[in-house]
Design a protein around this nucleic acid. Sequence first.
DNA 1: CGTCCTTACGAACACTGTTCTATGAAGGAA
DNA 2: TTCCTTCATAGAACAGTGTTCGTAAGGACG
Lengths: 252, 252
Amino acid sequence: MATVDQGQDAEIPAPPWRKRRRSTPAKAKQPLSQDLIVDTALRILDAEGLDAVSMRRVAQELDTGPASLYAHVSNKEELLELLLDRVSGEMRLPEPDPERWREQIKEVAHEIHRVLSAHADIARVPLGMIPTGPNALRINERVMTIMLAGGVPPRIAAWAVDRFYLYINSDAYEGSIHVTKQRASGLEPAEYIARFLGQVREYFTSLPADRFPVTVRHAPELMSGDGGERFEFGLELMIRGLESYVEGSKEA
Amino acid sequence: MATVDQGQDAEIPAPPWRKRRRSTPAKAKQPLSQDLIVDTALRILDAEGLDAVSMRRVAQELDTGPASLYAHVSNKEELLELLLDRVSGEMRLPEPDPERWREQIKEVAHEIHRVLSAHADIARVPLGMIPTGPNALRINERVMTIMLAGGVPPRIAAWAVDRFYLYINSDAYEGSIHVTKQRASGLEPAEYIARFLGQVREYFTSLPADRFPVTVRHAPELMSGDGGERFEFGLELMIRGLESYVEGSKEA
DNA sequence: CGTCCTTACGAACACTGTTCTATGAAGGAA
DNA sequence: TTCCTTCATAGAACAGTGTTCGTAAGGACG
């Protein structure tokens, strides 16, 4: 069972385009419910990564065949949506404080990034769809509130929320790829990135300087900074841009 | 054969970590070369999307078995890298003009976005790896040059290039998903997005207003703007942020 | 008791990337 | 010319994938 805070997701109607299951599990004793399936999928995800989460693997873990799952989950896609929303329940959000809207947006961004990164390559899921689960809604509401409290005009805020998600998700995804490759390589994390950076550096400096003068000269800068620093930088970039839209700002 | 401008990719050493083929095709008369395979893959991509590009499908198109491809391409991943680089050859880049660095960055961003979007869901490929092909290098060099000409400090520029790519690629990917789903639905593009937006709007306004006051009230803003406008907005956000790092700017 | 409805699930379908193995043809050396 | 090596070509197979079909079982209801 999930032991984490799931937010309060009672009474939120499900998106109308999420196809209804063939029926409701009703009062099944304990065997094979939607929650149980999602729990199992989450366990596999954490232990072996998203690619290991297959219908067959989940079924096997529950001592049954893959066909059995389709009574509780209409799709693999739906299973992944549910899985993402379960994970999203771990994201803790600050109470809006108008004075600190910039910091709070960063806090939320880091929190989303942290939780996604904590669950293998789950970040691949939100990139492939628009999350509509209760927890996505909860986060959306909160971030939007923070921005409005900071004086960001409504339409700007609405679009900005969208752009921030895209950025956070894609960065988390990119990060998860490296983790996956590092795992597959069998090397230590430090050894892996050292070797990786070494190869890229060698490649950059080996380029013909007359055709790629800037790349060759600035190879050190191109390779500087780890994932965290770059994520932070992009965030800062977007927030500075957003500030310029606040009413009464320098630009308008 | 590819009829498009491939940039000049002669003499650029291949990345050392790209495993060498079992041997060089040398002077094979005409049957089954790496170029031919990539050409075929590109044709399938454009006609049916990235999911249709399988080793079997490419082989079948060439009247052979999948095993034959592995003499010219060590991997499916490598095939996709080659495919991406072939497509990237279509991207036309402006000559750097220090006065217009902001506009030029936008131009490049739109160009990358345009070309990626023109080839089905190829945008999924660069998200899953760091492009290292000759064309990626060519673009990197140019964008970096434009930024430096605009007075962006080298390390900031280096990181910014990275962040801009991530943004462009992920937005193009998100867009391609909608195109894929629209294709699969069989509906007209206009009809598809109308129906989609209608469902989301209905969902948002059906939410309990006491728990989601901001989402409910600003539903119109949350849904305003098409993909292009939102892409443009995110770009503007990042560029405004980047401006603030230019030496002699308001902030520093 | 019989009927109905829903969950459970083995088997099968049509795929996927990749490897092993055998075959055949071409090129160089003696 | 003959031999031998080298390498592109593929057929077959392996171990997977998501999903559907048809059937069996079990509880609820009339």
